[in-house]
Amino acid sequence: MDNNLLNVKQACDALDTSRATLYRHLKSGALPSIRVFGRVYVKRTTIETLLNEGTAQ
Score class of each variant (00 low, 15 high):
residue 25 H to T: 02
residue 20 A to G: 02
residue 41 Y to W: 07
residue 11 A to W: 01
residue 16 D to L: 07
residue 49 T to I: 02
residue 21 T to L: 01
residue 6 L to C: 05
residue 56 A to R: 14
residue 53 E to A: 04
residue 55 T to Q: 09
residue 50 L to H: 15
residue 31 L to H: 06
residue 28 S to P: 06
residue 9 K to N: 14
residue 47 I to R: 11
residue 6 L to I: 03
residue 22 L to N: 10
residue 48 E to Q: 12
residue 48 E to A: 05
residue 40 V to K: 02
residue 33 S to M: 04
residue 52 N to G: 00
residue 36 V to Y: 13
residue 17 T to P: 00
residue 35 R to C: 05
residue 19 R to T: 07
residue 28 S to W: 06
residue 44 R to I: 01
residue 9 K to I: 07
residue 40 V to Q: 03
residue 33 S to C: 09
residue 6 L to N: 03
residue 20 A to S: 09
residue 13 D to S: 08
residue 8 V to H: 07
residue 42 V to F: 02
residue 51 L to M: 09
residue 43 K to S: 11
residue 43 K to R: 15
residue 20 A to H: 08
residue 37 F to P: 06
residue 37 F to L: 03
residue 28 S to E: 15
residue 20 A to I: 02
residue 55 T to P: 01
residue 3 N to E: 07
residue 23 Y to S: 04
residue 34 I to C: 13
residue 25 H to V: 00
residue 45 T to N: 14
residue 43 K to P: 14
residue 42 V to D: 02
residue 23 Y to G: 08
residue 37 F to D: 07
residue 34 I to M: 12
residue 50 L to C: 10
residue 25 H to M: 06
residue 9 K to A: 08
residue 9 K to F: 00
residue 55 T to F: 12
residue 19 R to I: 03
residue 28 S to H: 10
residue 45 T to P: 08
residue 33 S to T: 05
residue 15 L to I: 09
residue 12 C to K: 05
residue 14 A to E: 04
residue 34 I to S: 11
residue 35 R to D: 11
residue 37 F to E: 09
residue 32 P to L: 08
residue 22 L to E: 04
residue 25 H to P: 01
residue 10 Q to V: 02
residue 19 R to Y: 11
residue 24 R to H: 07
residue 45 T to M: 12
residue 20 A to K: 10
residue 29 G to Q: 09
residue 25 H to Q: 05
residue 43 K to Y: 10
residue 31 L to E: 12
residue 35 R to G: 09
residue 24 R to M: 00
residue 42 V to M: 05
residue 39 R to G: 08
residue 2 D to K: 01
residue 53 E to W: 14
residue 16 D to M: 13
residue 46 T to K: 15
residue 53 E to S: 04
residue 51 L to D: 00
residue 8 V to G: 05
residue 17 T to W: 05
residue 51 L to W: 02
residue 5 L to Y: 08
residue 57 Q to G: 12
residue 57 Q to T: 13
residue 34 I to Y: 10
residue 39 R to K: 15
residue 10 Q to G: 06
residue 37 F to I: 04
residue 47 I to D: 06
residue 52 N to D: 09
residue 22 L to T: 10
residue 21 T to Q: 07
residue 40 V to C: 04
residue 43 K to C: 11
residue 1 M to K: 13
residue 25 H to N: 09
residue 30 A to V: 01
residue 52 N to L: 04
residue 25 H to Y: 05
residue 23 Y to R: 06
residue 50 L to T: 01
residue 27 K to W: 10
residue 25 H to E: 06
residue 1 M to L: 11
